[in-house]
Design a protein around this nucleic acid. Structure first.
Lengths: 120, 120
DNA sequence: TATCGTCGTCTACGAGTGTAGTCAATCGAT
DNA sequence: ATCGATTGACTACACTCGTAGACGACGATA
């Protein structure tokens, strides 16, 4: 059921453009991923098998749409990552991000208002 | 260079007990992971090949020690996860954790003081 | 010294992943 | 009616991961 790294790149295209053809996914990834047409197709097929994507026939091609919302995916991925590496504790994760300069001033400000909201 | 899920469980034992034998890693995981002796050994060997762990001969056995600190591992894992899923933006990650009830009251309090510290 | 348990080494094997070739059907243009 | 381009289907292949068996060396014990 899990979406792999390469598949995630395809999902991102689908989230941005629902109901897109395989060829268009391929061109959307041009310059970013040097993948052949077939590679993209394989990833789409596997995502369909996993149920993460649906395909709708449109003439002689298919239009693909993500079945898992980006939001749901991100929530699930965040949760399982924190469970795996930080035993479910979020605070150490944020501390690490801060250490590695993964946090910009904007991030910190954003987090601050987020925390404010969470407190209620 | 990446540590897989099963390997991470072994790393955790090594972080807790540096310079431990394969057999002791195995017993340390008993009740938690139902792995054979050989499975643990394979994971240790792979970790050595990856350079994440070193082995020092001690009589006819080896003592294993993590070469990557838990802190470094966590920082790296956090960074690559946020890069992969959230394009490097940490705030959305925290927002998702909050949504999925991954944050306890304690976590929120901890984050708050963390943010305070970060602001300076 | 013959045996038994312990430890390391080598090997394996199925599922999953990243990447892609080939073939065949079909649609539009000549 | 034919030919090239597009598209899907099937197949492949090396590599990784989780899991572990088989075998051999060595030390302890009887």
């Amino acid at each position: 059921m899990q979406v792999t790294d390469a598949e995630l790149d395809v999902m991102r295209v689908l989230w941005a453009s629902p109901g897109i053809s395989a060829a268009d996914v391929h061109t959307a990834l041009e310059g970013q991923k040097d993948w052949s047409r077939q590679t993209v197709k394989t990833l789409l097929t596997r995502l369909c098998e996993k149920g993460a994507v649906s395909a709708e026939a449109d003439g002689r091609k298919f239009l693909y749409t993500a079945q898992i919302s980006q939001d749901d995916y991100e929530t699930g991925a965040a949760k399982s990552f924190v469970d795996k590496v930080f035993s479910g504790r979020a605070a150490p994760l944020v501390a690490h991000l801060a250490d590695s300069r993964g946090l910009t001033e904007d991030d910190i400000a954003e987090l601050e208002s987020l925390i404010e909201r969470l407190k209620s």
